[in-house]
Simulated assay, not measured.
Amino acid sequence: MWGIVPAAGSGTRIQPLAFSKELLPVGSRFDGSTERPRAVSEYLVERMVRAGADKLCFVIAPGKSDILEYYGAGYDAAAIAYVVQPVAGGLCDAVFRALPLIAPEEMVVVGLPDTVWFPEDALCALPDGGLSFLLFPVERPEYFDAVVLDDEGGVSEIQVKCPNPASNWIWGAFKTTGAVLAELHALWLERGRSDEYIGTLVNAWLARGGRARGARAGRSYVDVGTLHGYRAAIGLLSTQAGIPEKDGVLP
């Protein structure tokens, strides 16, 4: 299974930094008996590997060689490949940069490398096949992509940064097959590459008869892309996977 890590963003909300935002130290890890700072993107990578990803693809911008230097050729038992997004073009463009590496029958998980969420094994709740979203409850869903489900757990709509969303459940990661990812890519091209966000593209795909499911398996979710989010992530980690006082992130 592939894990796609879109890491080409400039991180303007938390700049200035002297390094890529995905390497922002958040919490720590042990290297043998030595405790070292942990890059925020390691939380996503660790969760992908735990869910069964044995190949990872980092999508990076041309100037983000520090990510390659940090991760090298692999993480734990997973091999790592790198592809370049030449110009910032949104999340859809970044994710589809990895498509040439992925066979139609392979499973793929996609997450955001500047987030910290629990439980660690939540990705395991997503089924193989089709398209499914891992959902988390947040207090301010209007700053995220809120996912509206029907009575059977199917995705009815993804409300992208909607002022008054109909759900407080947002997606934090998704799982699909290479074949479905190729379908989404073809639709994205047909729509003139106009979709910056996964949510608007998936809405168009659903309108054409596509089906997706949502799994409310997440408990806590923090976007570390702002100073507020950084503080919230530290608080979340200090509770050792407990629920923070305020989930999500304010701008």
Rank of each mutant, 00 (worst) to 15 (best):
G214Q: 12
R208T: 06
T200N: 10
L201C: 11
I198P: 00
A207W: 03
A217G: 13
V222L: 11
A217M: 07
I198E: 06
R211W: 03
R213G: 15
R211I: 14
V202E: 00
W205Q: 02
R216C: 14
N203H: 05
A217K: 11
L201H: 05
A215V: 13
V222C: 07
G210I: 07
I198C: 02
R213V: 10
A207P: 04
A204W: 08
Y197F: 15
G218R: 01
I198L: 15
V202F: 02
R211M: 14
G210D: 09
R211G: 06
A204S: 12
D195V: 00
A207K: 12
G214W: 03
Y197A: 09
A212S: 07
G210N: 10
G209R: 09
L201F: 07
S220C: 13
R216G: 09
A212Q: 11
Y197H: 15
V202A: 05
G199R: 06
G209Q: 13
R208P: 06
T200S: 13
N203A: 06
G209Y: 14
Y221I: 01
A204V: 02
R219P: 01
L206H: 06
G209A: 13
W205A: 03
A204P: 01
T200Y: 03
T200C: 04
V222M: 05
R219W: 07
G218D: 08
G218M: 05
V222W: 04
T200D: 11
G199C: 08
Y197L: 04
